[in-house]
Design a protein around this nucleic acid. Structure first.
Lengths: 344, 344
DNA sequence: ATGAAAGCGCTAACAC
DNA sequence: GTGTTAGCGCTTTCAT
C-alpha cells in the first residue's frame, strides 16, 4: 500500500520530478506529448499528489476550516433527526462558497470534554478558518490569528483585529417588539433573556429596550427572567412569569426559539391560548418553530449567509493580508407566524 | 506573518527540535520542567504545529473525508433555507463519529462543471474517505482505493473490494407498497421511477414489483412513468399518468419525496383530494414531506447513520487494512402520514 | 530524558 | 519546455 510518488512517476515516464509536478499544477506548461505520457503512468500507478507534501512545499493547503461548538443533537430531534441545525446551514453556506473559490472545507467541533485544542488541530491544516463565537478561548484565537486569517462568526466583536460577522440581533428584536406593540397592540410585555454573559441574548434584550422606548413604554433595565436558552429553561421562565403577582403579560418575548417552544408547552398545559391569551415570540428561526402549534413568530438569522460571507472574508484576506479588519452586520428578518397573533 | 516552527521554539526553549516535537505528541515522554519551558515558549511565539509537515513526516493526517455530488440548493428551499438536505445529515453523522475517533472531517462537493478531480483533491489530504455513490467516476475510485481506505455510500455495490454501505431501498419500497395494498386496499397502483441508470430508483421499483407479486397483483416490468427526481418531474409524471386513458390510479408511488411533493401540487390544482381520491407516497424522508398538506407518507433513510457507519468502517480498515471488504445494509422505516390514508 | 540526522513528497527558483 | 537543487516543518530511528 505504499503510495507512489513523483519520483516513481518521473522515472517510469522518463521525465524529471519537476515535470510531473507541473503536469498536475499547470498542465499547459508542459508539452502535450509529455503530459500525456506522464498522466498515463500516473494513472497506471495510481498516483495521487500528497496534500501534505504540497502543503508543506507551497505553504498553502487549499483548505478553509470551521470550528464550532460541541452541539447537542439531543435537543434538536423532536422525534427524529430531521431538524436543520444552525451549524448545518453555516457549513452548507461555507462549503458552497469555498467550492466556488476552489477550496475544500475542514470542519471540526470541539470535543465535549476535550482537553486538546481544537484550534491547533484545525489551524495547522488550513489556510484560514472561521470560528463560531465562544467555541474556543479568546487567548488561543489571539495567538493563532497572528499567523492565519481567522473570522469570527456571530457573537460580539471580541477582538478588534479580527474579521467578524454578526447578525443584527438588536435591530431584529427591536423590529419584532415593535410589531407586537404596533400591530397587535400588546403593551404588557415580558422579556426572557439568556445568561448575562451571552452577548447575543444581551443584544436582543437591548433591542427590546429600544422598542419599548420607541413606543413610550416603560423601559426595563433587566429581562423579566433569564434562562439558559433551552426548552427546559423556557418552561421554567414561563412558570416564573405566570407566578408573579399582578396581571399576566400579554406577550412573552424569548431570547431564542428553544425557550419559546418550551413556553408553548407550559402555556398549553395551563389552558392559556396562544396567541389569544398571550403572545409568544422566539429568535433564530429554527425549523422547529414552524412545526409547533401554533407556529412561532421569530426572527430568522441568515445562517447560510454567515457561512458564505465567512469564506468571502477569508478569501479576501488571504489575497491581501493587509486589509483593515472588517466587521459585517447581516440583516435578519422577522418571520410572522401565529404565535404573535398573525394569521397563519 | 511567517509562522514559527519547531526550530524557533527549540532555540528559545534551549532544547532540540525533537523535544519540541515530543512535547506536542507525547508530553509524558518529556520531563515536566522541560515540557513547561517548551510550552511557555510555544505559547509566547504563537506556535502551532503544521499539519502538512506532520502529515508528510508521519504519513497520516488525522482527517477523514467525504465527497458528495454538487447538490442543487435551489430545489431545496420551499420558501427559505430551512430544509435539511440528505447530505447534511450524512455530514453531521460523519462529523460526530469522526470526532469520537479523534478525526476531523474534510468535506468537498464536486464542482458543477469542475474539470479537476474531486478525489485527487480529497484523497491527498485524508487518511480515508467516504464517497456518495455516483459522485466520482468508478475508475478514479478504483485507482485511489488501492492506496487509501474508501467507503462507498448508498447506491449499489459497484466495486466489490470496497467497503460499502447501502440502504434497504428494495425492502423499504416493498413494505410501503404492501401497506398501501393491505392496509388501505389500494390495488390500482402506479409507480413513478427515476432515470434508468439510477440504482436507488431501480431498487425501489424492484421493491414495488415484489410487493405486487406478493399480493398477487399484476407485476409491471417497468415504472408507469419516470422522472429526474425533481418536483418538476413529479408534476410532469403526474400529469402524464392522469392523462392516460382508463381509470386513474388509486395511488401513485414515487421513487423519491421531491417528486411526490411535486405531484401534490398538480393533484390539488386538479381538484383531486389526497388521499381520498388518490394516495401519494414518496421515499427518502426529507423534512419537507412533513410540512406539506397533506404530509407525505414516505420511507425514511437513516442518513445520519450512514455517516456514522462510514466513519466506523474507515477507522476499522485503517486499523486493519487486511480486513475483508464489508457491505452493510441499513434498515429504513416506513413513515405513515396522511397522504397514504393514515390518520394524522 | 534528550539530541543528531535522515528523510517524508512536493514546489519553486533558477538554469539550461 | 524541462531538469537541478534546495528547502518546506515535522517525525523518527538511533545514539547518548
Amino acid at each position: 500500500m505504499s503510495a507512489p510518488t513523483v519520483y516513481d512517476v518521473a522515472e517510469q515516464a522518463d521525465v524529471s520530478i519537476a515535470t510531473v509536478s507541473r503536469v498536475f499544477r499547470k498542465p499547459d506548461a508542459v508539452r502535450e506529448a509529455t503530459r500525456e505520457r506522464v498522466m498515463a503512468v500516473a494513472r497506471k500507478l495510481g498516483y495521487v499528489p500528497s496534500g501534505s507534501a504540497r502543503g508543506l512545499a507551497s505553504r498553502s493547503t487549499g483548505v478553509l476550516g470551521l470550528c464550532f461548538p460541541d452541539y447537542d443533537d439531543s435537543t434538536a430531534g423532536v422525534d427524529d433527526g430531521e431538524i436543520t441545525l444552525y451549524s448545518d446551514e453555516i457549513i452548507r453556506g461555507m462549503e458552497r462558497a469555498a467550492r466556488r473559490h476552489g477550496y475544500a472545507l475542514l470542519i471540526a467541533a470541539s470535543l465535549a470534554g476535550g482537553t486538546e485544542s481544537l484550534v491547533a488541530k484545525v489551524a495547522g491544516r488550513v489556510d484560514g478558518f472561521a470560528v463560531l463565537a465562544r467555541t474556543v478561548p479568546t487567548e488561543e484565537l489571539e495567538i493563532v490569528s497572528r499567523r492565519l486569517p481567522v473570522v469570527m462568526l456571530a457573537g460580539p466583536r471580541e477582538m478588534d483585529h479580527l474579521d467578524h460577522i454578526e447578525v443584527a440581533n438588536t435591530d431584529g428584536q427591536r423590529q419584532l417588539t415593535r410589531h407586537l406593540i404596533e400591530d397587535h397592540g400588546r403593551t404588557r410585555l415580558a422579556f426572557v433573556g439568556g445568561a448575562e454573559d451571552s452577548p447575543d441574548a444581551q443584544a436582543r434584550f437591548h433591542g427590546f429596550q429600544l422598542a419599548c422606548q420607541d413606543a413610550g413604554l416603560p423601559v426595563p433595565d433587566a429581562p423579566d427572567a433569564r434562562g439558559d436558552l433551552t426548552q427546559a429553561d423556557g418552561r421554567a421562565a414561563t412558570e416564573a412569569l405566570l407566578a408573579r403577582p399582578g396581571p399576566a403579560p400579554e406577550a412573552i418575548l424569548f431570547a431564542n426559539d428553544q425557550m419559546a417552544v418550551g413556553a408553548l408547552r407550559v402555556l398549553e398545559h395551563r389552558g392559556l391560548r396562544v396567541p389569544d391569551d398571550i403572545a409568544v415570540t422566539g429568535f433564530d428561526g429554527i425549523p422547529l418553530t414552524r412545526l409547533t402549534r401554533p407556529p412561532v413568530t421569530t426572527v430568522r438569522q441568515p445562517a447560510g449567509r454567515l457561512g458564505e460571507n465567512a469564506v468571502d472574508l477569508l478569501v479576501q484576506r488571504l489575497a491581501d493580508p493587509t486589509r483593515a479588519p472588517e466587521s459585517v452586520m447581516l440583516p435578519v428578518t422577522v418571520v410572522r407566524r401565529e404565535s404573535c397573533g398573525c394569521g397563519d
